[in-house]
Amino acid sequence: MPRTTSQRSIAPVTSAASAHAAPQPGITLSADSAVAADVKALVVAGKRDAARERFALLVTNLQRRAGRIAYQYLRDVQDADEAVQDAFVKVFTHITSYREELPFEVWFTRILVNRCLDLQKARARRLRWIVPTPSGSDGIPYEPVAPQPTPEHRLLASERGRVIMAAVQELPDRQRKVFTLCQIADQSTSEVSQALGLSEATVRVHLFRAMRKLRTLLVHER
């Protein structure tokens, strides 16, 4: 369920260097924001090895959520993987420009979404000139299939799962992106508006319309 305000509490700050960054009034920073502030302080101090080790924790915490967002944008696991990697690398190389008083997740999500949009454009250009090859024929091995279906597999294979996926795909692009960020990334409308560069009112309108359309499409399937 998406939040309309930031609700996560801040974790204990582990380094003295990040303690001087006071959050903006009304914004409660997350544990990931504190870790990001630590990484920034370590980079500024020239302790790059320690910064990398600390950043590894941030990657662990955020990569699954980042993969979900990127996959909803790109609908291709290879492209989504690339987008997530690029976003994390960019975050680390530009960590000194991170403002500790703002939620790290919003900054990261914005970088990730921009990278996804870049890859979408590149893919559109590629498809204009090159005939796509069938999956698996370009030397990329297939993902091994799990011998036992996971709960996720079972959910997607169910009739209800298929109907929901089809309904989400019917949403207009902007509505789907807003809805996805709110639902999957567990971000508030305020955070989504910052991540997408839209006004919060616009985000609310898109979200409301997306939910109304989904309700219309799915109400008969209940």
């Binding site: 369920m1 699954r64 993969g67 979900r68 996959y71 909803q72 696991v77 989504a80 993987d81 993902e143 996971t150 709960p151 996720e152 597999h153 959910l155 997607l156 209800r160 799962g161 929901i164 996926m165 309904a167 989400v168 996805t180 639902q183 999957i184 939910m211 989904l214 799915l218």
Partner: peptide, 16 residues
């Protein structure tokens, strides 16, 4: 919306 969220998450988690 909980159902939709669960499906969207599962969709990505299957490939990741």
């Amino acid at each position: 919306m909980d159902d939709v969220s669960a499906v969207l998450r599962a969709e990505a988690d299957v490939v990741f």
